[in-house]
Design a protein around this nucleic acid. Structure first.
Lengths: 157, 157
DNA sequence: GACGAATCTCACGCTTACGTAAACTATCAG
DNA sequence: CTGATAGTTTACGTAAGCGTGAGATTCGTC
């Protein structure tokens, strides 16, 4: 198993930053970082001997991803947790794929990846559909109003 | 001004129901109904002499609309409040439109309706756009995986 | 090694959207 | 008129997603 961004690896030792710098780099508060960790969303790449959290670029990217899913797409942390789990699974499947040569094995991996992506997609599709319907309803009323307005423009210019 | 679903009219006297029946009819709790009222989203059509809330079909429809915007589209009550205000405004513009014959006046009404609808649409468009981008990203990865899987199918059937 | 800044771990506070219990009152069947 | 049922207000409880100290440690710098 290899969930890259989430793995509790002892870090590449290099380019890890403190929680404060990670916060600045991602635009979230240190409190939020600790909260995400508590919720199992992002674990520091390592800890200093004294117990301070250390974040590698991968973790910062993960945090930015979390905010994206939150702010821009309106998922809650529970949903985000599942989505990230799926994405992590995809990454690990990629790794596994490249580590094996056997076509039959690769096929099984590719197929699992496809189901995971279907799951991800379905999750979003539902949300998107509602919005599309809503916009449809608005745009219909809008077109009718535009026709009326155009007619009135002719009548009383 | 005529905001149909929201007007504190003394009701059509007919077919108004108690809060309990309104709750059953809309699928929300009585607590939620009182909360929506407190937040200024839905006012009962009338009250019984003893002070009990009475809901007409229009209010029930409004409540269902609220849940739709909440559950299916992920708006919070503050946003919903604004959306409903816009929709109420559209309704009252419709009424006003039909009460006046003057083309110039009608044109002004139609134009305001158009701006209100633009506002409503813009609100949703942003949300929808994010979701579309997300799905796009997924479907690209998906297509690549499908190609790989197809190739492997050939190789090891 | 000392000192200020940054982190650490509790731990309580805040907002949203209600749930839930308490103590009364209104409505309706009989 | 009498319950039983349903409704009313008031008010505290809850889960999510952090904000904000408090008091103790640790880090980086001189």
């Amino acid at each position: 198993m290899t969930a890259p961004s989430q793995a509790p690896t002892q870090a590449c030792a290099d380019d890890v930053v403190s929680i404060g710098d990670a916060a600045k780099a991602t635009g979230v508060s240190t409190r939020a970082l600790r909260y995400y960790e508590e919720m199992g969303l992002v674990r520091p790449a390592a800890h200093s001997p004294g117990g301070h959290r250390l974040y590698a670029p991968a973790q910062c990217a993960r945090v930015r991803r979390i905010r994206q899913l939150q702010d821009l797409m309106g998922f809650n942390l529970a949903e985000i947790s599942e989505i990230l789990a799926n994405e992590d699974r995809l990454d690990s499947l990629r790794d596994e794929f490249h580590r094996h040569e056997d076509p039959a094995h690769r096929l099984r991996i590719a197929e699992e990846a496809l189901t995971v992506m279907s799951d991800l997609d379905a999750r979003v599709e539902a949300k998107q559909k509602r919005l599309a319907e809503f916009r449809q309803a608005i745009s219909e009323r809008r077109r009718r109003a535009e026709v009326v307005a155009a007619e009135l423009q002719q009548e009383a210019p």
